[in-house]
Amino acid sequence: MTAPNRQLLALAEARRLVRDHDISRDELVALEVPRGSSAWERQRRIALDQCRQLVAFWHISPRELRDAPSAPPGPLPPKYRHPVEGHTWDGEGPQPEWLKKALTKEGYTVSELRVAEAAGLS
């Protein structure tokens, strides 16, 4: 491959890195690695830099990284239950249609639909 072709490829790769990683040209130049490094190594350095920035921003300690939970938390327990149909809602996100219908058309009150365990919490 000729020198001009290598330069064009390097320029195209730099543009792609700036576009894909949302970094400025100055940041890209600051992350410059020695000649002969592969594109994977450059991307790895960018990724590591972004990780460091996130750790610093969120004040994450090394201990928190080591002691990360092994499994995601399970679903939340229901806070509301329809007494006849048995539909439930955990109180997160938009109200489900069954709850809106129970409150507006079926005549139930919020306290009547609240699950006993959840009633003591709120």
Rank of each mutant, 00 (worst) to 15 (best):
K101P: 05
D49T: 15
P83H: 06
D26A: 15
V110C: 02
L76P: 04
G120D: 03
F57L: 12
D26W: 12
E85I: 06
R35I: 06
P94R: 14
F57W: 09
W58L: 14
P34W: 06
A116P: 11
E112I: 06
P72E: 08
A3Y: 12
E85L: 15
Y80R: 09
W98R: 01
E117H: 06
K105Y: 01
G91P: 01
P62N: 04
T109A: 06
S38A: 08
R15V: 09
P4L: 08
Q53K: 04
C51H: 11
E92R: 13
G74H: 03
V84R: 04
Q95L: 15
R81E: 10
P62G: 05
Y80T: 10
D26Y: 12
C51T: 07
N5A: 15
V33Y: 00
R15L: 12
A14I: 08
G86L: 07
L28Q: 00
T88Q: 00
L9K: 10
L103Q: 05
L48R: 12
P75H: 10
F57P: 00
E13N: 11
R15S: 08
I46K: 04
S70G: 09
Y80C: 08
V18G: 00
D49V: 13
P96S: 03
R44P: 00
R25V: 08
W98D: 01
P75I: 05
I60P: 08
E32M: 11
L103C: 03
R66A: 14
K101W: 12
W98G: 03
R42L: 10
Y108I: 08
R35K: 10
E92Q: 06
V115C: 02
A71L: 09
T2L: 09
D90L: 09
L54W: 15
S24K: 10
R81D: 03
D90F: 06
T88A: 00
R66M: 09
S70K: 11
H87V: 03
E32D: 09
R35H: 08
I60L: 15
A14H: 07
P94E: 12
P73I: 02
G86K: 05
A119Q: 07
L8C: 07
E41M: 00
L31F: 07
S24C: 11
G107Q: 04
D67R: 14
T104Q: 15
S61N: 07
E97W: 07
E112K: 03
G74F: 01
V55R: 10
P69K: 02
S61L: 12
E41I: 01
R6D: 00
L103K: 03
R81K: 13
A3R: 13
T104P: 04
L17A: 11
R35G: 06
V29R: 15
L28P: 01
R35W: 05
E117L: 01
S122R: 14
T109R: 14
G107N: 02
A30D: 15
T88W: 00
Q95H: 15
G93N: 14
A119F: 03
M1H: 01
K105D: 03
P94Y: 04
E97R: 15
P62W: 02
H87Q: 12
W40C: 10
A3M: 10
K79D: 09
Q7Y: 13
H82N: 01
R114Y: 02
A12V: 04
L48D: 11
E27W: 05
K79H: 11
D90A: 13
A118D: 03
D22P: 01
L54R: 15
R42N: 02
W40D: 10
A71D: 08
T109H: 07
A56H: 02
M1V: 09
R35A: 11
T104E: 14
